[in-house]
Structures are given as structure tokens and as C-alpha cells.
Write a protein that binds this DNA or RNA. Structure first.
Lengths: 214, 214
DNA sequence: ACCTGAACACCGTTCAAGT
DNA sequence: ACCTGAACACCGTTCAAGT
């Protein structure tokens, strides 16, 4: 439990440890005292490098957005949109705590504005009017957030052993009352999250393409 | 602060009060002690009617799903899907705490399975294969969750005075670095959430229609 | 049967004291 | 400059005691 790391404390190291702790024990279990323990230090020492717990949580959100990485704008807007959306979905779905955390904090960091600026810029350059470009942004953003939500936070999305067992239990329980649920049960249990995400993205990007003003 | 209501405590009344409290003060501020105070009772009395705080939070999620209401299946699958998706989005977007709360608790209640069963049943009856029906469910669900997220939890989504001011501040700050953001600023500030949601839903439902197997 | 007060094991955070 | 111990105002929850 007590790591014996003796590198000096920094904001980055604290946030890194917080991410690891939340991955393992869940974000609700994250406390200043436990985080200090992991870093081999008293809780109060953290305040020398960080403004408080809120600052740590902000840092974790920043960490999530940094995980999206730079966006390659070499192709056309559809290629860029697909790459950016997929990278964002993967960055969020990689941590169970990502969606709940983002949803209680402000998502409007420089990183998120940067992605938005690139995406809308490519649409405008391709001949879209600002209003349609704005619509397109919202639809894509909904898909990314909504799918990350489903992948990381529903029993059918998570693919650990415990989630599988719970999912099977639920399907047994509700399968008799809800026959149509039973009819798609195998897909719920076994669908590829990447294929599933791309399927919806295909629909959305084609729809946006079809709505390009003449 | 202390309401003088003297009706007997019940689970429903406690959950109702919790919803109202979270609406006003945010879900993080919700505690057993403060909830007791609102109900004119000591915190410990709540345990006579409720298993604990988790039980209250579960009740709040149940309350959200109940708010979606019964689904009218009189029209074709697209009409039903639009009605159900819109009702769900509105129920979730009505409370800032809805998305964060659902995202940390299990969403697989009888209510959510019921909606899913109806939707998939209509698609199957219309001639869709189970795999495509399952895809359709995921895409629609992402849009609902993702848009509720954006409407209730982003500065641009919320339409109270404080959010407007923060949004304008952010646009001033980042508008110079990100010109394409500035180009769509007025739409971000003033778009109709219902029209925006329907725009994306149009794309998604049309796309699903186009993928109906021959 | 329902409510309460005191208590326990936890929180985040402040602050004076140490080195 | 950085770390610490004690303290404060909060948590959720248990339990024996009241009515």
C-alpha cells in the first residue's frame, strides 16, 4: 500500500497518482489522506503543490483531454472528424470515472476548445455555413460523450468478469418479461465497442455530409 | 430552511425532498443531515424509511426514469423513437445532477429495460434484424445521453444568468485564439436545445432507416 | 413503531509548529 | 521551502435509549 517512491512531489506526480488510484478503487474512494498514503506522505503535504482536492480533479480532467492527443488534419473533414471523435471516445471510455467527473466539472478547457476549433474550421473551409457547422459539432459531441458513457458505465459496456456476470444475471431476470431484450442479448454482451461506435459515427457523418448547403 | 411539514415520513417523501434539494443546492451538497433538516427531522430518522444514502440516490434515478412517462406506440417506429428519445432527453436535462448521478449508478432499471424493449420490438416488427436493431438502440441512446450531458452540464447548455455570463467570458477569452469558435459563438449562446436535439435525431433516424435490410 | 443523542470512523482544510 | 500533528467543521452510519 505504501509506495516507497522518494522522488520529490510535484503537481503532475500527484495527479498521476490520483488517476491511478481512481482507476483501481473508483473516484468516490479518492481522498487526500489515501492519496497522501500512496505517495508516502501526509495528506497535508499535498497542499504545498496543489490548491486542494478540486485542483486535483481539474488536473484529472486535463489529463483526460491530453490523452486525446493532437489531431491530424491531413485528410478531409470527415477523416479528421472520425479520428478526433474516436480518440476522444477512447480517452473517455478508458476510465470509469471520466464521464461522471467531466459531467460535474467544466468541460470548456483550452484542450476541448482547441478540438472544437479545428473541427469547425474544417467544416467552414469545406463550404459549410456556421449554423450547420455548429449543428454538426453538437451531434458529434453527443455521440462521443454518450457512447463513452455507455462503454464505461453500463454493465453491458464494461467487459470485466464481474460486469459479465451481472449482465447475464440481468438478462436472465428481465429476459422473460422483455422478449425483445432477449432477442438482442448476445449483441449486448458481445458487440465490439469500436465497431459499434463507428456504426453510429458513419450515420452521423453521412447525415452531416448530406446537409451541406448547396 | 426548516419546513414545518408534519406529514409522516415515507420513502417517496424523502426522495422527493432529495430531488428538490439537489435541484437547488447541487447533488454534492446533499447530505443526510441537511435532508433531515429540510424535512423537520433528525438525520437518523431517515433510516427508518430508507436503507441509507445509496438507497436515496437509487430512488432519485428511479424518479428520473419515471419522468420519461409511458411511451405512445401508436405511430411507426420512427415516431415512437422520436417521442421516447425526446422525453428521455428532457427528463435528464431537467436536472443538472441527472447525468452525473446516472453515470455512477446502474442505469439498468426495469424502466430503462422497458423502453429498450419497446424500441427494439418496433424495429423487429418493422423488418429489422436483431443486429441492426441493437445498433440502432446504441446510437439513439448515445444521442440522448450525450445531448442531455451537453444541455445540463456545459456553460453553453445552461441558460441561467450565471452560465450566460461565464459563457460570454469564455468566448471573449478564447475567441481570439480560436477564430472558428468565434464564428459559431452566437449559435452556441442562443441555439434552441429542442431544435438542436431534433436535428441530430433526424440524422440518426434517417440513417437507421437507410440501413434497414432488404 | 418511530424518533433521538451520543458516538465512531471517516472527510477536506487551516494553521501553528517543526526541520 | 517543504513537511507534520493537532484541530475544526463536516460526512454516513450504528446503537442504545427514549416515547
Amino acid at each position: 500500500m505504501t509506495t516507497t517512491e522518494r522522488r520529490p512531489l510535484t503537481r503532475e506526480r500527484i495527479i498521476e497518482a490520483a488517476v491511478a488510484f481512481a482507476d483501481e478503487h473508483g473516484i468516490d474512494a479518492l481522498s487526500m489522506r489515501k492519496l497522501g498514503q500512496v505517495l508516502g506522505v501526509e495528506a497535508m503535504s499535498l497542499y504545498n503543490h496543489v490548491a486542494g482536492k478540486d485542483d486535483i480533479l481539474d488536473g484529472m480532467v486535463q489529463h483526460l483531454f491530453a490523452g486525446i492527443g493532437p489531431i491530424d488534419t491531413a485528410g478531409d473533414w470527415k477523416v479528421t472528424a472520425r479520428a478526433a471523435a474516436t480518440a476522444a471516445k477512447n480517452a473517455f471510455a478508458a476510465h470509469e470515472w471520466a464521464v461522471p467527473l467531466i459531467s460535474t466539472r467544466e468541460t470548456t478547457s483550452e484542450a476541448s476548445f482547441g478540438i472544437m476549433d479545428v473541427m469547425i474550421g474544417m467544416l467552414l473551409a469545406d463550404g459549410y455555413d456556421p449554423e450547420t457547422a455548429h449543428h454538426a459539432w453538437h451531434v458529434i459531441a453527443s455521440h462521443v460523450l454518450g457512447y463513452a458513457f455507455q462503454e464505461a458505465n453500463s454493465v453491458f459496456g464494461r467487459r470485466d468478469d464481474q460486469a459479465r456476470e451481472e449482465a447475464e444475471q440481468l438478462l436472465r431476470e428481465y429476459g422473460r418479461i422483455f422478449p425483445n431484450l432477449a432477442a438482442v442479448a448476445t449483441y449486448l454482451m458481445e458487440c465490439s465497442h469500436d465497431e459499434e461506435f463507428q456504426y453510429g459515427l458513419d450515420i452521423i457523418l453521412s447525415g452531416i455530409e448530406a446537409r451541406k448547403p448547396a
